[in-house]
Write a protein that binds this DNA or RNA. Structure first.
Length: 380
RNA sequence: GGCGGCAUAGCCAAGUGGUAAGGCAGCGGUCUGCAAAACCGUUACACACCGGUUCAAAUCCGGUUGCCGCCUCCA
């Protein structure tokens, strides 16, 4: 997770540390008539919560209970769910007013989120698969117990498929982040994940990753170009920039985190700026510099939000070259020597020889680019 | 079977009433000794299908088909 630049959570609470709070919520639900004891168990009575189903769009009358599994006959309604479960021999257990047992699924989320965030908080996230029953039940518990709105916004993300198949251990097609990162830059992974809306499922394929990687390189290439003509790669500090790009990006993000649109804006800017720099041909006036400065600042700021573009552009390319060389076992000295020979041939206008050397390098997966300042190369 | 979601060019993907962002690939060009990189131009005239509402629909409504998730214990 750190490698992917995922920020760590402030708190990662565990249910076993909050049994007291859990029992408190259950007691509250019983006293409010939303829950009942049955044997050693305590159930939530879904019929007592009139909004039940509001999140998932289901209505109790419409659902066919027990279509697939027998219903526990202790329940008053088949959709009643357990808040506290009577102890079973081999399971961990705690004391409670209803005897030894353990919390049901759902309840610890209500208890812990309330404990840390209050009865009413802003955003609750989770995978799409948790909408029903888990999140539905959380709402019932929390709103039943505290009589106020539980959360303002639910954010449910879609899943990652691999070659159109659900990623799962039983299919044996799951991939470890560690493995993926051996092949692709962490920021390329992020760019890929952010390239479509978080709610949609997305398909992990090599082609998609190669494209994401190429896209990342393209953005860095622009930054590198800007750094080159501005003669400084020092990150622009806060307070500069904040131009139109940043504003548009914020607008996209304010629209339900439309990262795909945000990334579209980045590429649009990259194209415009490359054109701009083609036009000024490496000799920017003062106002041009201001524009470059401003866009660079906006890009880096956006990168900060998305968790990309966090490296200095020169470092990015050096690192990438080094990785590729190591992976393919290419001899740098040999490459440099061949490029030197080719430069000589070119000076003598011996194009045939120059092209032969280029082909030779190409066979070694080396791609060369002749530029006014000299020849640069990279690994394919 | 029930409920929910999705269906946009060769591929990926934005776009929820006013005439289709962006990326990749392709094709044509500029630049270059030739390339590469970059840029310019080009690529959807039924946005799954059928019907409806509207001056106007990818966008709203109804139906059909296909795909995905959930409907159970566990998290």
């Amino acid at each position: 997770m750190d490698a992917l630049k995922v920020k760590r959570a402030t708190v990662e609470p565990r249910a076993m540390d909050h049994i007291g709070e859990i029992i408190g919520v259950v007691e509250r639900l019983i006293s409010r008539g939303h829950a009942y004891k049955a044997g050693g168990d305590v159930f939530f009575a879904v019929e007592t919560f009139k909004d039940y189903g509001k999140l998932s769009g289901r209505r109790l009358e419409e659902m066919q209970a027990g279509a697939r599994v027998e219903v526990d006959e202790k329940k008053r309604n088949p959709f009643d769910f357990v808040l506290w479960k009577g102890a079973k021999p081999d399971e961990p257990m705690w004391d409670s007013p209803w005897g030894k047992g353990r919390p049901g699924w759902h309840i610890e989320c209500s208890a812990m989120s309330t404990h840390f965030l209050g009865n009413h908080f802003d955003i609750h996230g989770g995978g799409k698969d948790l909408i029903f029953p888990h999140h539905e039940n959380e709402i019932a518990q929390s709103e039943g117990a505290f009589r106020e709105q539980f959360v303002n916004f639910w954010i449910h993300n879609g899943f990652v498929n691999i070659n159109q198949e659900k990623m799962s251990k039983s299919l044996g097609n799951f991939m470890m982040i560690k493995e993926i990162l051996k092949q692709y830059h962490p920021e390329a992974v992020r760019l890929f994940l952010l390239s479509n809306h978080y709610r949609s499922p997305l398909d992990f394929t090599d082609q998609a990753m190669v494209e994401a990687d190429a896209g990342l390189e393209k953005i860095y290439a622009l930054l590198h170009r800007i750094d080159g003509t501005l003669g400084s790669s020092e990150p622009a500090g806060d307070g500069q920039g904040l131009g139109g790009l940043w504003a548009s990006f914020c607008e996209a993000m304010d629209d339900d985190f439309n990262t795909a649109r945000g990334i579209g804006l980045i590429f649009e800017t990259v194209r415009q700026l490359n054109r701009f720099m083609d036009d000024i041909a490496g000799k920017p006036g003062e106002r041009d510099e201001g524009r470059l400065q401003s866009v660079r600042c906006d890009l880096l700021r956006i990168g900060g939000v998305l968790g990309i573009l966090t490296e200095a552009s020169s470092q990015f390319f050096e690192q990438r070259k080094a990785d590729a060389l190591r992976r393919k076992g290419i001899d740098t000295a040999l490459v440099e020597r061949l490029i030197g020979e080719r430069a000589l041939a070119r000076r003598e206008k011996d194009w045939a020889r120059a092209d032969r050397i280029r082909d030779e390098l190409s066979a070694m997966d080396i791609l060369i680019e002749d530029q006014p300042e000299g020849t640069t190369w990279k690994v394919k």
